[in-house]
Design a protein around this nucleic acid. Sequence first.
DNA 1: GTCCAGGAACTCA
DNA 2: TGAGTTCATGGA
Length: 275
Amino acid sequence: MIIENRNFDIKQIAESGQCFRMNPIGQNKYSLIAFDRYIKLKQLDENLIEISCDENDYNNIWERYFHLDFDYGIIVDRLVNGSDNFLKEAALYGKGIRILRQDPFEALISFIISQNKNIPSIKNCIERICEAYGNRKEDTASGIVYYTFPTPDKLAEAKKEDLRSLKLGYRDEYIIEASRAVINGTLNLEALKVCSHDEAVKTLKSIRGIGDKVANCVSLYGLHHIEAFPVDVWMKRVLSEYYNNKFDTENYRGYAGIVQQYMFYYIRHVYGASN
DNA sequence: GTCCAGGAACTCA
DNA sequence: TGAGTTCATGGA
C-alpha cells in the first residue's frame, strides 16, 4: 500500500518517543511491531509512504494506528499562523508526527518501564520483556523472526526475580501489579478508552507505579485521548525556558497532546538529544 | 566517579 | 501542598 499524506513522516514518528518498537532498517526505511504484526515502512518522498500491508489490513489496522483518519494539517496550519513563535517553529519542524493509536496494555507497560530511563534503555527493556514473555513469530514475507508484546496474563503470572533479571530495576513489581489489575478487572482499559481523559488519568493513577506523567502517556498513546498533556523532563525544560512555567493548555483545548508532541520532538532537536 | 534519563513513592515538615 | 530522598540500570 502506498499512502499519500502531507503530514506523515516515518522518521519523525519513530523518533518522537511515543512508541518503542519502530526501528530503522535502512535508508528511509523502518520496521514496526504492533498488534502481533511486523510491517515495514518506507518514506518514498515527503508526502508518500509505502506500507508493507494489503488494503484490508490498512483499513482495519494501520489507518487507525497512524491516526490517518484525521487531518493534522489543520493543527499545523493553526500553529504556524498563530502568535506563539516557539510552537510555530516546533510545528513546522515536526509536521509529519502523528499520535499513534497503540495497544493500551502495551502503552501501559511500556510507559511504566519508561520512568527515569532514556529512550534507548526503554527500548532494550521492552525487547527483553517481549522475548521472555511474548510469542515468537516469523514474518512470512521477509522471514524475519520477531516477538509479540506479552499479554496481560503472562506478565500477571511473571515472577519478580525473573523480571528483575531482565534489568527492569524496581519497576518489576509495578509491572506485575498493573498486569494483575488488568486481569482481575480493576483496570478496564477498554472502558478507559470511552470515558473522559480526566477520568482515565484518575483511574490509572490509582495503580502503584503510575503517576501523572505515565498516566498522561497511557491516556494519549494507548487510549487516544488527544487532549492529554504528558510533562516529562524535556517538557519541563520547554515550559520553564520558553513559557516561564505559564503555558496554558486550555488554549489548545481538545488537541493539547498533539501540541505537546511537537514541543517534545523539537526541544530534543534544539538540545541535540542523541537518544 | 558523576550525572542523567519521556518518574514515582515515601518521608518529613 | 511542597521539598528532599530513594529506588535499579545503562550510557555519556
